[in-house]
């Protein structure tokens, strides 16, 4: 790839950061060129971010349908899985799975709830219900908005 062909497709996906690409200059020598993005690469990254958002939304719906408790939703929102949640809370997996049940969740002790709020980094009010509207993980967790 020639230096002047290095894509400069900027959607501010990387918050102003440019990545180094290697390309050849007019004398055929390799040199570093900075690039804010490339369209196929950006689409691929946005697809991956969308999968996360879709899983979160699916979890949110299950909570709204009273099939799952908010713990299940926040696990997805924080990009965790059962293993990570187990390691963070030190609760066994089968206990966490029980906490996914609304009936069990509603009877959880204050200390157990506190454990979840501290692991998820949210308030108790947040933990007790899920947001009313679909959320974007990047915006909710890091205050970062993608321009689509």
């Amino acid at each position: 790839m020639k230096k002047e062909e290095v894509p400069q497709f900027d959607e501010n996906l990387l918050n102003g950061i440019k990545e180094i690409q290697y390309a050849v200059d007019e004398n055929g020598n390799y040199t570093e060129v900075k690039s804010p993005g490339w369209e196929p690469k950006n689409i691929a990254l946005k697809q991956a971010l969308n999968i996360v958002d879709e899983m979160i939304e699916d979890a949110r719906q299950q909570v709204l349908n009273e099939e799952k408790s908010p713990v299940y939703f926040y696990m997805y929102l924080k990009q965790m899985d059962l293993t990570i949640l187990k390691e963070e809370t030190r609760f066994p997996k089968f206990i966490i799975k029980r906490h996914f049940k609304p009936a069990v969740f509603n009877k959880l002790s204050v200390s157990t709830l506190n454990k979840y709020t501290s692991v998820f980094g949210i308030t108790k009010e947040q933990l007790l219900k899920v947001p009313e509207k679909p959320v974007k993980a990047l915006e909710y967790n890091f205050g970062f908005k993608l321009n689509n």
Partner: peptide, 25 residues
């Protein structure tokens, strides 16, 4: 999504472009 994953690994976070092939060149 499957295809997108290949492209991500090929281009993302510092491969220098083309799945490190330019870096190797």
């Amino acid at each position: 999504l499957y295809l997108g994953q290949v492209v991500r690994m090929q281009e993302e976070i510092g491969t220098g472009g083309a799945g490190f092939r330019f870096l190797y060149a």
